[in-house]
């Protein structure tokens, strides 16, 4: 279980600095698909960076199975929005997927097998020897996902991973993620600003407020599995949940606009 308790993150600066997150607490169950959604300007990325151990919280604790996180944990993998920067452009797709495995003392042959499996999983078996820049954006993000899968993380952290690909690719990647999750049982913490995406993918959706962010509410998504872009999104329950999440976010934005006025 991933446990976040009373998390606070303040960036230093004039007038006491900028507090992106304050008093944030929640728990993510093993194998859960947990999505964090909120208006733009909410400290979603900050929160994710703290969970991933890339950024030290100012106060509060984050722990995985009772062990506090004070640096990037071995068993976590992160998929960033900016796939072009995250992949090593001068290395082949296969080599990119292999890199994080190199240290694990695994021999070259088992690494190669893991890479082949992961690339097949994301539908890129034929692109193994290409360089990332020879692939489309969506395919590059698949490589980043394959890299994360091959790593076999306990927790997969994703920061708006599909925000910069086109709508059709995005739908494909969402289904890919659901399939991966189905097959591996990985815990996934996912940040997005897309309400449809959050409802479609998740077991639970956490709505966060604008900064200093805290959890506004957590909505359970009891939609049946396996999910389907057309069938699931046509369900009245989907529309209802979507309206609930979307309505709450709009309310928050509206209230904030009033408060600012």
């Amino acid at each position: 279980m991933l446990l976040i308790t009373d998390l606070e993150k303040t960036y230093p600066g004039p007038n006491g600095g900028f507090t992106a997150v304050r008093g944030m607490s929640f728990a993510v169950q093993d194998g859960e698909m947990f999505t964090i959604v909120g208006p733009s300007g909410a400290g979603k990325t900050t929160l994710l960076r703290c969970i991933a151990g890339l950024s030290a919280p100012t106060a509060g604790t984050i722990s995985i199975d009772g062990v506090p996180i004070d640096g990037p944990p071995r068993e976590f993998a992160v998929v960033f929005q900016d796939y072009a920067r995250s992949l090593m452009p001068w290395m082949s797709v296969a080599r990119n997927v292999e890199l994080p495995l190199v240290k694990h003392g695994s021999d070259a042959r088992s690494r190669r097998r893991a890479v082949e499996q992961a690339l097949a999983e994301v539908g890129l078996a034929d692109a193994a020897h290409k360089k990332p820049f020879q692939l489309s954006g969506g395919m590059q993000q698949r490589v980043a996902i394959a890299r994360a899968i091959a790593y076999r993380p306990k927790v997969l952290i994703m920061d708006e991973p599909f925000a910069s690909v086109d709508a059709q690719t995005r739908a494909d990647l969402e289904d890919l993620l659901l399939k991966v999750r189905e097959e591996t049982g990985t815990t996934i913490v996912f940040v997005t600003h897309d309400v449809d995406e959050s409802v479609y993918l998740s077991d639970r959706v956490a709505i966060v407020t604008r900064s200093p962010s805290r959890i506004d509410r957590i909505v359970s998504i009891p939609l049946p599995h396996p999910r389907d872009q057309i069938v699931t999104k046509s369900l009245p329950e989907f529309a209802e949940l979507r309206a609930q999440v979307f309505g709450r976010i709009r309310e928050m934005v509206h209230d904030a606009a009033l408060a600012d006025a």
């Binding site: 960033f80 995250s86 890199l99 994080p100």
Partner: peptide, 19 residues
């Protein structure tokens, strides 16, 4: 982001330098 990637996958110093 490249550095974050290296950190999140726990690259060693040498791996980060090289890659």
């Amino acid at each position: 982001i490249a550095l974050d990637t290296a950190r999140s996958y726990s690259f060693t110093l040498w791996q980060r330098l090289r890659w």
